[in-house]
Computed example of a mutant assay.
Amino acid sequence: MQNREVIVVGGGMVGALTALLLAQLGNKVKLIEKSPCIRPMENDGFDLRVSAFSAQSKNILVAAGIWDNLPKSRLCAYQRLQTWEKSSEKLCFDSQAVGLEALGYIAENRLIQSALWDKLKQLDNVCLYEKRQVKKIVNGYAEVSLLLDDEQSLRADLLIACDGGNSAVRQLLQIGITAWDYRQQCLLITIKTDIAQQNITWQEFRESGPCAFLPLANNNACLVWYHKPQKIKQLQSLSNEQLKLAILQEFPALSFDFSVQDKGGFPLTRRHAQRYYQGRCVLLGDAAHTINPLAGQGVNLGFKDVQCLVDLLQHCADLPINNILQRYQSMRKPANLVMQTAMDLFYKSSKSELPLLRILRKGVLSAAQHSGGLKNKVMKYAMGL
């Protein structure tokens, strides 16, 4: 694959990582991104868009050479994870039990994206097309070419679409999707607490939807509140002081005082592309699949897509592009579907009010907590280890 020309559409975390890894292997990369990359300043408030990066995702970022460049003042490691249903036994995970310094790391999406862009700008074999969009794609036998909205024409051996859940590339290629709306929304709330940084993330399941706590760097945190769209709309209309009162009255109990900093609601939609490639074009990350954020696996699945495709392009360079993309699809599509289905089943069952199912759920959580080594194996699988 070395010295081939690659176009990456979408410069978010998945797209920027793809572009960087391929460029570091010697390929000529053209990265197209419609929105400017915004670097968080040290004194900025925390952005609502944060992700929980697994140990495997951290290893990929280490290999890309950007992990040590991330400001520690905006990066939070967590060693413990707890999940439970009201009145049930807690299912607890600890990094020491799996021999790791942390189960994962929580950081703002823009922090990772900006670090990747900084690295890309240092490479001579990378050309950045900022504030540009794809207008037309010609998916030929020997190459792929596209037309940008400023009438620039580009060509390459391969086009990689990392342009999100509403992927313009996927639509231009007329690749169908299977999708549905969860009929719920998620409210993200950044808060500042009166205690030092915590090392635990937790999630409580309720009939109205899950509630979760994500620690952020220093004495910051993020609350995640699932509910019906009408309820989320009502919560968003509140002032920060009024929202704090609603949290104290309706959210799981918090063991500290806090002030609300920012809030934002997001719809929950599941999408899965019916195929991951067409000709010399391939879909990665949210362009290929979106998942319920219940277990924080969205970005981690995207990074697994990246690692799989880059490894195939590097180690199967003697194969035709079509064969490589077929292998990528056969490896990643079933794996992503399994994770999507598991999260859907877990999510739907957690909201059921049927007494028998509630008893079963509590029994499953209790059995999992006392399953010994099996619990740790499941955790390692979720972390990609």
Rank of each mutant, 00 (worst) to 15 (best):
Q249K: 15
G363P: 02
C222E: 07
G209D: 03
G15I: 01
P71R: 10
E108V: 08
G285F: 02
N218A: 13
N199A: 12
P210N: 08
C316T: 03
K135R: 14
G302E: 04
Q234L: 12
I66A: 04
S54L: 08
L81H: 06
N220A: 10
Y328Q: 06
C222Q: 14
Q122G: 08
H272K: 14
A52P: 05
L325P: 03
Y78S: 07
S87T: 07
Q329K: 06
Q82V: 08
G15Q: 07
A317L: 04
A287V: 00
A212H: 05
S239I: 07
E353P: 12
H227R: 11
R80V: 05
L91C: 14
S35F: 12
S88K: 05
N3F: 00
N109C: 10
C222W: 05
Y226K: 01
A335D: 14
E204Y: 00
N322A: 15
L91H: 05
L188K: 02
H315D: 13
Y182G: 09
G10I: 03
K34I: 11
A64S: 10
Y226V: 10
E241P: 06
G165F: 05
A317H: 12
L374V: 06
G279V: 00
P229N: 05
K136N: 13
S259H: 03
V62G: 10
S366Y: 03
K90Y: 01
V29E: 07
G15A: 02
G15N: 03
S54I: 10
L374T: 10
K348Q: 15
Q340C: 09
F303C: 09
N322W: 03
C76L: 00
K90N: 09
Q329N: 11
M331K: 14
A64R: 05
Y347W: 13
N323I: 01
V299Y: 00
Q278R: 13
P40N: 06
A295L: 15
I291F: 04
L188D: 03
L268W: 03
L312W: 02
I32Q: 04
G11C: 10
N218Y: 02
L75H: 02
G209Y: 00
F205S: 01
S145K: 15
E130N: 13
L116F: 06
M13I: 14
N139E: 09
I195W: 06
